[in-house]
Write a protein that binds this DNA or RNA. Structure first.
Lengths: 407, 407
DNA sequence: ATTATTTTCTCGACAGTCGAGAAATTTGAT
DNA sequence: ATCAAATTTCTCGACTGTCGAGAAAATAAT
């Protein structure tokens, strides 16, 4: 359904646009903002005056004279305009980061996760404690925290911050919104981890390719398997989604997965699955809760020396991934695939299987093999994705909730 | 990337909005338009005055007095504002329909398709001839044809009207844009047939459910298998896509498909595949080009009487569909599934397999079985989808290309 | 000092939406 | 017949927004 448009909306959109170019390019002068946005100089004056009055941006005090002419006045976000807390949940720890409105990291610490199956309720308590701890350490007032951006592996509700299924808690749902509402009035968003990787890669790609960028998928290999897809959308920039790829059906009645279903992709390509397959343990064995990477390194070493069952284990994993990717491509347009995560160190062993698995589908035979690239530094990408997403959400909210107020 | 906004754009969007409620609800009075759009009465006056000046809408001359007070003046599209040609390509015929700007069918005929494999070039000639024929019969001047909307089974390029792969011509691509450009200056759009079914069902659903409508998939069963997905998007109404579902990989190294690949869903669930499987012909046999429905009816009759291999054939087909749908759901959100096409007459035989195939995946075990409904009258839905899409494209174009001109 | 150059700011014109109320037009009561 | 009530459409002034042009500001070079 279409909705009505109004002049006030125009100002809102253009204000957000100004903030977004400021994010992308750092502190900018009046003229540069005008160039980047396409808005006239007069409009920039009006918008920046509003934003300055609302204490959202500020004039940079001084900068090197850059030639003759009236010197430029750089505009930048006010760091103290608001703050963001990033919570990255991984299998062995929870990392808390406090970031200011300009995207600068202020404080960070990790808390080990107890491996006891204390369950979701207990875990949520830990998160609440972690959040109050990072707030206290910084002496920032709670109202200044505008957004809490959480990420985890697993399946996430697309509209609300609810973790629907996760490798750790299974179907024990966690609703972060209602869990944090008593303590916090900040907005809470939750994203799948690999989705953030895809978002970060997509943003990088868009800077390089500009309008040529169309779409991209990120595949994260590890104990579990994640996939994020980013597509450039119509007006609102990028559109991203994080399918339940690791638990997409690979083969009906196949190996038993951690999720309890048989034949998931993860039950062939997750670390525990490779281990299981390499040791020729029956495929209906209940999967190991945790596999040290050193175990897998050993198998990889054997495979690289030509050991048969180890080689086959990685090959099976590759096939599952390749088939799954081909199915994904059948349902979307063709797009490049970026592989990240700890599993990339075995890419040499997985590659053949992946390519063969891809090649078994009509779409790949027709359109050719998609571009596959290996990308390291997954944790950095996750954090970058958090910032990209969270800060633009803040920009949006801050503008919508009233710039007019001179305060 | 965000783009700048302006007051002129506001008017454009609101004009399109006015035209769209006029489409949805038929001829409306000033006040009603105001109610439906949320725009003020004054704005409606301004916009409708513009549209009337540009000969896009007109005042309905007279209507029954509806109570006391100043009588309403109904506004409606001018039929002669422009015309649309709908071309529906099916396996045995091509249907041409001429429609006026108000959505009224003016003329229609079908041309049999020769089953000779004369190839794409020859076929395009036929389409060009068909188009000129329908134009001549109507005595409408060619410039008045604003849009040619084509549909076919198969895989379609998402940005240009290029048929990338089709059951009939295989990988012999057809670029309708360049094929028709010499004769026509009308815009040309091409959509997958099942996508249009999904669009039509989505539009109906949105009228019923309003904002509650989220998404929907249409599955078309026949000689080939089609899937269309419609999701409600942010601003721009609905977002639709037509994946290459029929040729998504069902089982690696499986039955030979018409497309030349092994293991496609279609190679298990297409009519020819059911036939092949029922007669226990080896799965690598080259599939029949064409299967009369009566053949399949016979197998269905046998299956309903308990004949074993016939029953298994339908069950296999259902499993392939169910597994495929489960994979689709793993990659999207959960959504209801509407089944259409000639294959619905065998739904009683397919159902168990579909449900079992769906149940083998994590997502369905977790979120439960999606709602499945059988919808008849596929051809009507296809045409309805054409009109929905094409006329709103025309509305958009007509407004963008300048309403201001009084002409 | 003066001039050239560059950036920022300001002003008036123009486009769009909105609310309020005037104008138009019919029904129903007196 | 006439007038009041009801209802719809139209119009006007206020407000918000963008834009182009040019004034004002501030520095470097001459």
């Amino acid at each position: 359904m279409l909705t009505k448009s109004s002049t006030e909306l125009v100002r809102q959109r253009n204000s957000v646009l100004v903030l977004s170019v400021l994010r992308r390019h750092g502190a900018l002068a009046h003229t540069e903002i005008s160039d980047f946005t396409g808005l006239s100089s007069a409009t920039i004056s009006a918008i920046t005056a509003d934003l300055e009055r609302a204490h959202i941006i500020e004039k940079s005090e001084q900068q090197a004279a850059s030639g003759r002419g009236r010197p430029r006045v750089l505009l930048r976000q006010r760091r103290d305009c608001g703050y963001l807390i990033v919570v990255i949940i991984s299998s062995d720890a929870v990392q808390y980061s406090l970031v200011d409105y300009a995207g600068k990291l202020i404080d960070r610490f990790s808390e080990e996760r107890s491996h006891d199956p204390a369950g979701a309720a207990r875990f949520v308590e830990g998160v609440r404690a972690g959040l109050s701890r990072i707030l206290e350490r910084s002496r920032i007032s709670q109202e200044k925290v505008l957004l809490i951006s959480i990420s985890s592996k697993g399946l996430v509700n697309s509209t609300e911050p609810v973790l629907v299924w996760s490798p750790i808690f299974g179907s024990d749902q966690i609703d972060f919104e209602s869990a944090l509402r008593p303590d916090w009035q900040a907005k809470v968003i939750l994203d799948n981890e690999t989705l953030l990787v895809a978002a970060a890669l997509g943003a990088r790609e868009e800077i390089v390719k500009g309008a040529d960028f169309r779409s991209l998928a990120a595949l994260s290999l590890g104990h579990s398997i994640g996939l994020g897809i980013v597509r450039r959308g119509g007006q609102t920039g990028q559109e991203i989604s994080a399918p339940n790829f690791g638990h997409m059906l690979h083969m009906a009645g196949g190996g038993l997965c951690r999720c309890g279903t048989r034949g998931c992709i993860e039950a062939y390509a997750g670390f525990y699955a490779i281990l299981r397959s390499a040791f020729e343990v029956p495929l209906d064995t209940i999967p190991a809760k945790f596999v040290p990477v050193t175990e897998l390194d050993k198998i990889a070493a054997k495979a690289r020396q030509g050991h048969r069952t180890s080689t086959i284990a990685f090959r099976q994993a590759g096939l599952a991934l390749g088939n799954g990717l081909s199915r994904m491509l059948s349902l979307t347009e063709s797009m490049p695939i970026a592989i990240t995560g700890p599993g990339t160190r075995y890419y040499d062993l997985l590659r053949q299987g992946i390519e063969e698995g891809l090649g078994q589908s009509h779409i790949v035979r027709m359109e050719g093999m998609p571009e596959i690239r290996v990308v390291a530094d997954e944790p950095i990408l996750v954090f970058e994705g958090h910032l990209n997403r969270a800060l633009s959400v803040i920009d949006q909210d801050i503008v919508v909730s009233g710039v007019q107020g001179a305060e």
